[in-house]
């Protein structure tokens, strides 16, 4: 393939179908498995269905251990789902060639210190995907890498530098350039700014927004920071113990949250307003053991609004337009 070919926008036959769709995705890990001994099943992701229209930003939020990283790894094809299906522009992932898929979906990871090879130069790191996919001649690859560096706000002269010579923000720009050099359709960003200072975070978020418009990208944004969600995303999915408890347009979910868990997450945000003191979100202590999730609604032991059916009956998903909630208060 030539560089020109990947730079041309792909003719999109399936313009109507969402660029990424997850149907009833489940991933079960076996914990403590040994020879002749069955492990305990851990349902890291349990029946997740989401669909992401082209050009939109979907944020997935939740506490650590809620399954958001496992979900992102499945979207990247790094982990096989136990059951359920992923569709890329309407095509089942199982039918898409591994390399062809990697050209369309690329990751940006949290820690720009550990996700870049310290022994390669910036130019090599960014051109690596082109090399792996055999795109263009070696000289063109470096030029393509430099073009991409300029796009993400890195000086061209850094092409022969090593990651250790760069600041955290510059490294995250390198990671973004590497992800974009193949001109993917989708970026899966797993906490891309949580290792950065606030002033650098703002630069990276602004950059991602600019690139999204310029390159018609779709983002899946995994984060625990709800103020970033409001700034970045169009849609949000709130995850808890492997399930999506609430999803919908950001404006609706963050301004009128329906699920008590979403409410509690919102109450936990510390805005820099003086004189307000600390919030006291209505949340029971203790994240439950994922190996032994509570029966009924998984959130009920921490829920301030729990009532009789919550402890026994799993709530059904109630959908309304493109918003949905799983809570007995609404079914």
């Amino acid at each position: 393939m030539s560089l020109a070919a990947i730079n041309a926008p792909s003719a999109d036959a399936a313009a109507e179908s969402p660029v990424l769709e997850l149907r009833n995705l489940t991933r079960v890990f076996s914990i403590g498995k040994r020879f002749l001994r069955e492990g305990k099943p851990l349902r890291a992701v349990d029946g997740v269905s989401l669909s992401i229209p082209r050009g939109e930003v979907l944020a997935i939020v939740g506490e650590s251990g809620c399954g958001k990283t496992t979900l992102s790894r499945m979207m990247l094809g790094l982990q096989q789902p136990t059951s359920g299906e992923i569709f890329v522009s309407g095509e089942p992932l199982a039918d898409v060639d591994r390399k062809a898929f990697a050209r369309r979906v690329q990751p940006v990871f949290q820690d720009p210190y550990s996700s870049l090879n310290p022994r390669k130069t910036i130019g090599q790191i960014i051109a690596d995907p082109l090399h792996i996919h055999g795109v263009g001649a070696p000289a063109d690859r470096l030029a393509a890498a430099q073009d991409m560096m300029e796009r993400v706000g890195l000086a061209r002269r850094l092409v022969h530098s090593y990651p250790s010579q760069l600041s955290g923000g510059q490294r995250q720009r390198v990671a973004i350039a590497r992800a974009l050099v193949m001109r993917p359709e989708i970026l899966i960003c797993d906490e891309p700014t949580s290792a950065l200072d606030v002033s650098v975070q703002a630069q990276i978020l602004n950059l991602l927004q600019t690139l999204r418009a310029e390159l018609n990208l779709t983002y899946v944004f995994i984060t625990h920071d709800l103020s970033v969600v409001e700034y970045m995303a169009d849609h949000v999915a709130v995850m808890y113990l492997g399930r999506i408890l609430e999803t919908g347009p950001v404006r609706e979910v963050l301004h009128a949250p329906r699920h008590p868990y979403t409410r509690a997450l919102l109450d936990s945000i510390l805005t820099p307003e003086p004189g307000l003191g600390l919030p006291r979100p209505d949340l029971g202590r203790g994240f439950p053991d994922p190996l032994d999730p509570p029966p009924g609604c998984r959130f009920h032991p921490r829920c301030p609004k729990a009532f009789a059916p919550c402890a026994t009956l799993p709530p059904a998903r109630v959908s309304e337009g493109d918003a949905s909630v799983e809570c007995h208060l609404y079914d």
Binding site: V198, S199, N206, Q209, E230, Y231, V250, T271
Partner: peptide, 19 residues
């Protein structure tokens, strides 16, 4: 620093974050 923090009700559609 304060301008770098996304505020409640601030979305990218209303312009970039301060940096």
């Amino acid at each position: 620093l304060l301008d770098c923090i996304p505020k409640h009700g601030q979305s990218a559609a209303r312009g970039p974050l301060g940096s």
